[in-house]
Amino acid sequence: MTIPLPRKTPVSAPHWEACQDGRLLVQRCTTCDQLVFIPRPGCTRCLTETLEWTESSGLGTVYSYTVVHRPQRPEFEAPYVVAIIALDEGWHMLTNLVDIAPDDVSIGLAVEVAFRVMSDEITLPYFRPRASA
């Protein structure tokens, strides 16, 4: 049994397909420069459909986190660390932190994306402490 994997939609597919190539994509509005995540059909500031996919550095810091001891489903190995990452470009995403003991996590920790192949279709963008940190 594996954890539940994303079922991509026409709107989100480019994001997930880029993960398979080791790239973290976020939508950017070419009209007003707004960064949009999670993927949407239109810009959340100016409502245009002029969104393009742009590559993120994959670098950021831990904005908030929770160490989960009671897993969502038995397939998740507890404890695991759920985190919101503040990406350097000014957007946020949910993820799990890996390669770190839960007790060592703190808000503000510098992290980087770490892709893990989950299936033929899905590679997930986990985050880990930055190598230089």
């Binding site: 954890i3 539940p4 989960v68 998740f76 759920v82 808000i107």
Partner: peptide, 20 residues
């Protein structure tokens, strides 16, 4: 699709607000 795979559920969602 951007939440379930990270093992969240209601308690974890509210925990992220509380921790901050």
């Amino acid at each position: 699709e951007f939440v379930e795979c990270w093992g969240l559920y209601t308690a974890a969602e509210f925990a992220l607000i509380a921790q901050r």
